[in-house]
Computed example of a mutant assay.
Amino acid sequence: MNLLSHTPLLIIDVQKAFDDPKWGERNHPEAEANLKLLLAAWRASGRPVWFVQHLSRSESSLFHPDQPTCAFKEGLEPVEGEPVFRKTVNSSFIGTDLEPSLRRLGCEQLVIAGLTTNHCVETTTRMAGNLGFQPILVEDACATFGRRGPDGTYYPPEQIHEMTLVNLHEEFARIATTREVLGMV
């Protein structure tokens, strides 16, 4: 399967806020390097590159627009002409122009990567599938953090990441690696 020349790469919430140690243990330390490979391939092929940025209304949040941690991570910033969809909730489709932009482009597919797997990436991927798009989630260009369940049980990031992929697989998205996606470009 090859990607069409108008298939966008959607990079979700790759912001400095996620470098803060408060998040705890994280999986896929290579996610940003894989994102850079995808970004370079998309730009070289002239395919659309789109960014999503999470903005919090809380002034104390790492994602508040006045905080330096709200900025994109180094090497993963948009360049002139690459749209940024700014959101305040988990879904990149809510309160943004993402869906109409995809429809105007006439695309069926989109490639999704970013942070965090089980929050904004998962929510956006599910909605993309529900809206009739064919998302491809690049599993090793995403990452998440460990979390505690309601009973206090700790779930490591690898387990949360894998369960998110299981939940999305075949019903909402095609799951692929960076290498597989680069082979489609």
Rank of each mutant, 00 (worst) to 15 (best):
E77R: 11
E74M: 08
T96G: 11
E82F: 10
S92Q: 02
T88S: 12
T69M: 02
F72I: 04
V84M: 11
P100W: 15
V89G: 01
V89C: 04
E74Q: 14
E77H: 05
E99N: 15
P100I: 14
K87I: 01
I94D: 01
S91G: 09
S91N: 08
E99V: 06
L76G: 05
E82I: 07
P78H: 08
G106T: 02
D97T: 13
L76S: 11
C70I: 03
S92V: 04
N90F: 04
T88W: 14
P78T: 03
T69I: 00
R104F: 09
G81D: 05
R104T: 15
G81A: 08
C107M: 09
C107G: 09
P100Q: 13
S91K: 00
R86A: 08
I94S: 00
E108N: 10
T88F: 12
D97F: 14
V84N: 06
E77G: 07
C70Y: 02
E82Y: 13
K73Q: 13
L98D: 01
S92C: 15
N90K: 01
G95D: 10
F93T: 02
C107I: 12
E99T: 11
G106F: 04
K73A: 09
S92P: 10
P83G: 06
S92K: 03
T96W: 07
T96I: 07
V79W: 10
A71C: 00
E108M: 04
C70S: 07
T69A: 09
Q109C: 11
I94Y: 07
R103A: 15
